[in-house]
Write a protein that binds this DNA or RNA. Structure first.
Lengths: 249, 249
DNA sequence: ACAAAAGTGTTATTTCTACACCCATGC
DNA sequence: GCATGGGTGTAGAAATAACACTTTTGT
């Protein structure tokens, strides 16, 4: 069993990743079930002393999902004292999640940087648990289990940020397959926003962003009119991400 | 001379505050001129082990400006390795900014949480330097001196964030005097955005937000028509901050 | 009475919203 | 041929943008 080597890590600093996926018309998050416990946790990690924090977040993402070079954004820094719960490290030792030698390291004041990622469900290999967890799985946002420490709060904040970002940025690349239909894209938006949108207006608005390419193919096999398959125009997509949609002033 | 007691501080974690003020139709930032150096720095500090990071940022703000309970927002976490410049702590000791006993503590990997604040220039007492600085002063954004380490980058990022926030949130409270005229408010927006706006359309849009109260008084003393004085409707202002202006979806 | 800046109104254009109808496909 | 969901158009309302004239004030 390989426990972590705390010597090479920045003390008191952790990373928590809220990894969103979209599948079967539901928004899901990747969660880890802690070893010997009913509690779940966000995938996370620590920061090696010679690495950028942003890069370490990308490592966490890749370790759990196998994907890299995709949307991953720092969204909040969690620095409250109340995050540090008395007796928590002791519990971790008891459950064999960390080694006794490391307990002292975990007793220190910890702060955490929150990241959220959008990943295409289908591109992800079987989610990988680590040595602290017995399971790593996609869980629907509507059906969340009890989470460790303040991870519930972190998740909520990430979701809230994502909803706000919808107004300024395109989403969908990385969250949808390479090609997708307009109704699928709409379902994604509706799921993130938690409300229904008008089909016709959605289409018009989305097309006006000018980030979609009509592939001239259709998705067949359904017992109704075959919908057109679109893909993102990556150049325009990334430009839109940079510049944002907002034009208020 | 009182140097810091590093024992009670969270190691490797600092706070940097970008404190914006608005004066004489210019956006300004509060900067500290380092002792025995031509370099300037953002006001900042460290985090006591038993304090929330957000609260410590408020302490930094109050120490420098004397104001409290005003807009102060965490905007980014800076965690790149490149922030930690070889030989920097040594320089700090040489310039008597930190004590030799503390040099080792400063040699550790440091990460930083960036905050920005909006403060009303006139409410601020004479900006207070600390034991690391010989001067604390308002500096125009158009006329920035050379800044220490990555502080220039942090400042730039804060300004960028502020510009984006304009679209979602009201600003002005804390940045303008208690009462102000519509042209003054417009000047603030123009300064932050770095572009001119149409007087008539600005007024209409601003009034449509429904966060202003007409005080029925005028600012006299100018050799032209006396402009109406407004103040913010605080309840509605804070509601607008919560909910945001954006209606995109 | 004049310069300088505040205040107000209107119109054309664009965007948003709320709709209803037709079209393909598999059963 | 019918149920299901995809695709398109349009008219009214609202927001935006561009623009010109009148008012107040100190000198």
């Amino acid at each position: 069993m390989t426990f972590i080597n705390t010597d090479e890590l920045v003390p008191g600093l952790s990373i928590d990743c809220v990894i969103f996926g979209f599948h079967e018309y539901e928004l899901k998050v990747l969660l880890m079930k802690m070893k010997n416990s009913d509690l779940w946790a966000l995938p996370g990690g620590f920061v090696r002393k010679d690495r950028n924090v942003d890069d370490e977040a990308a490592v966490v993402l890749e370790l759990r999902t196998g994907v890299r070079d995709i949307f991953l954004r720092q969204f909040h820094f969690f620095g409250n004292v109340s995050r540090n719960v008395d007796g928590h490290p002791e519990q971790l030792v008891k459950k064999e999640i960390i080694s006794p030698e490391n307990q002292a390291w975990f007793e220190e004041r910890f702060v955490s940087v929150g990241y959220y990622a959008l990943v295409e469900h289908s591109k992800v290999q079987e989610p990988q648990p680590d040595h602290t967890s017995e399971l790593c799985a996609w869980v629907s946002l509507n059906d969340l289990p009890e989470l460790m420490l303040d991870h519930g709060l972190i998740l909520k904040k990430a979701h809230h940020t994502l909803r706000l970002e919808l107004n300024n940025q395109p989403i969908g690349l990385n969250l949808l397959p390479e090609t997708f239909t307009m109704p699928e894209l709409q379902a994604l938006y509706e799921t993130v926003l938690g409300k229904e949108l008008d089909r016709r207006n959605f289409r018009r608005k989305m097309l006006s962003y000018d980030i979609l390419i009509d592939t001239n193919e259709k998705r067949t096999g359904t017992s109704h009119k075959a919908p057109t398959l679109y893909k993102f125009d990556r150049d325009k997509y990334f430009t839109a991400m940079q510049d944002g949609f907002s034009t208020a002033w």
